[in-house]
Amino acid sequence: MKKIFLLITILLCINYCFAQKAVEKKTRLTDFITERYQTIIQTDKQIKQGTYNALYEKKIVIANGVYTNNKRTGTWHFFFPTGKLLQNYNYTTRQLLYEAPEDTTSTIRYMIDYPVTEKDTTLITKPIRLGGRYYGYVPYFRLFKLPADMQNSNTQQIEVIMELLVSPLGRLSDFKFHIRYYNDKEDVKLINVNTDLLSDEDKTFIPASRDRKLIASRILIRCYITRLDGIDIY
């Protein structure tokens, strides 16, 4: 009887060890971006566990960090495809450690319902997307779909503006695409996107503020059509 019990215990331990064995995964996120990470199996569910890397054109790291039981933990680093560091964020302490300055070459614009003049001394901070100004928007890129009547067009002649409304609590509350041909400023297709398609983490921002008071804001991002009819930031 004791031998049978011991055998069952050993088999259960072996089964548990196999269930906990880490498996490396590789997934394509966009035309240019792939991600590599490890998963373990828990009750028939794949859980991200361990080091995570997102790569641009399979060689340039644009996101690096660690998952613990399917959650981002510790300090993550986010980069632009040129290799420039854009953001360091600690997901354990929920603290922004670094955000790269943004200059006039940026294709991202921010709007708030408050008139600002050159002489205005009001302290205004812009909204900040967790994940930086490139990788942070990848989940939004993936929800773009070129309208059927444009799919046989010259995509180089199409402009896409992604518009995001961020609440004073730092939550994405509205999401849409403005799509038009460059030579047609009147005919703009407005595509509303269901924000429920994004995870809570993908809808999280550090909200804009005015004199330390949190306020709503809009983010406008100019994008281009990729070779497989996806989008990317200029």
Rank of each mutant, 00 (worst) to 15 (best):
T9C: 13
I10G: 02
I10A: 09
L11R: 04
L11I: 13
L12T: 12
C13R: 01
N15W: 09
Y16N: 14
Y16M: 09
C17A: 09
F18K: 08
Q20D: 08
R28W: 00
L29C: 05
D31Q: 10
I33V: 15
Y37E: 05
Q46L: 11
N53Y: 13
I62L: 11
N64F: 04
G65D: 07
G65K: 05
T68V: 13
N70Q: 11
T75Y: 01
H77F: 08
F78I: 09
P81S: 03
L86N: 08
T92D: 11
T93M: 06
Q95S: 13
T105L: 13
T107W: 00
I108C: 00
M111Y: 14
Y114M: 13
P115Q: 13
T117E: 13
L123G: 02
L123H: 15
I124G: 05
L130D: 00
V138W: 12
Y140W: 05
L143R: 03
D149A: 09
D149P: 00
M150A: 03
N154K: 14
N154M: 14
T155F: 02
Q156W: 06
I158R: 04
L164F: 05
V166G: 02
P168A: 06
L169T: 10
L169R: 11
D174R: 09
R180H: 15
D184E: 12
K185S: 15
L197C: 01
L198C: 11
L198A: 08
L198H: 10
E201H: 05
D202L: 01
K203G: 04
T204M: 10
F205Q: 05
S209G: 07
K213E: 13
R222H: 14
Y224G: 04
L228E: 12
D229F: 12
I231F: 01
